[in-house]
Simulated scan of single mutants.
Amino acid sequence: MAGGRPRSFDSDVALDQALEVFWRQGYEGTAISDLTKAMGINNAPSLYNAFGNKEELFRKILDRYAEGPARYISEAFAESTARAVVHALLHGAADATTRPDGPRGCITVQGALACSPDAEAARDELTLRRAAGEAALCERLRQAGKSGELPAGSDPEGLARYFTTIYQGLAVQAAGGATREQLHSVVDAAMTVWPQEPDD
């Protein structure tokens, strides 16, 4: 049988290669030929047969990103206190967006911020995922308010928006060349706004 995928094709390795291409080049900056070359697939029809079209492949690699380079997010949400969740989330982002062995920044933040109408589905997918992340953090902070982890009068929604903005800003700064140490310093400064019980 001519063409198609090589007999030794490893779909996990291929998805990792596709992830790196999308991460470096963004959704719209990535051509099908870039993907077939990086993934070790002979032609576009073989790519479509294995993973669906470009949009479907992009969704698959976003899931893979969440399970791999961004697994620190789910690990952070397993922390026992809301403050520890935010601390782990932001410091994890500082590390993940400055990995020496991969692209800088965050594919979920930078993957399709600006795009043509043809790429709107990818942009909308990323927007939904970012919104889901903020909603999850907001819910955790609401729980913290109900349990007394946050002082009375705290604003869980405002805190979630603030820390999400810091989180996304870390990715932008990393892509622009900020060092890991600089980003950790930003996180330390951001954590100083954590609500404290008023002094008597």
Rank of each mutant, 00 (worst) to 15 (best):
E149N: 03
E157C: 02
D118H: 13
T127D: 07
V85G: 03
L126V: 01
A112R: 13
A121W: 07
A160K: 01
L126T: 02
A121G: 11
L128A: 12
L90K: 08
A82G: 03
A136I: 05
A94T: 12
R83E: 12
G133S: 13
P103M: 11
A76R: 01
S147K: 07
A131H: 06
A189L: 13
V86S: 03
A93V: 11
A174L: 15
L89A: 05
P151D: 06
G153V: 01
A122S: 10
D155Q: 03
M191E: 08
E125S: 15
F77W: 02
G148Q: 13
A82Q: 03
R123K: 15
F77D: 03
G153Q: 05
G177N: 04
R99L: 15
G148M: 08
A160C: 06
L170N: 06
D101I: 09
R130M: 04
T97Q: 12
G145N: 10
A88G: 12
A152P: 07
E139V: 07
A189C: 13
A76T: 00
S147P: 01
A190R: 12
S154V: 04
R130F: 01
A152I: 10
L159G: 00
P103V: 04
T108K: 15
L89C: 05
A135T: 12
C106I: 10
C115K: 06
G133V: 07
G177W: 04
G158A: 02
L90W: 08
A175T: 11
Q168F: 00
A189R: 12
A93H: 03
L137I: 08
S147T: 15
E139I: 11
V172K: 09
E157S: 00
A132K: 15
G105T: 07
G177P: 04
A114N: 14
D95T: 13
L126Y: 02
H87T: 13
A122K: 09
L150Y: 05
V109L: 02
R104S: 13
L170P: 00
G158L: 02
T179P: 06
D95R: 11
A175Q: 14
G169I: 01
M191G: 11
A135L: 14
S147V: 04
L170M: 05
Q168W: 00
D124W: 02
R142T: 10
A76F: 02
Q182P: 10
R104P: 12
S80L: 12
S116Y: 09
G145S: 14
A144P: 06
L137V: 05
E157D: 08
R142P: 04
H91D: 14
G102I: 11
R130T: 01
T179Y: 08
P100W: 07
G111F: 05
D155C: 00
T164I: 01
Y167N: 05
F77Q: 01
A175I: 05
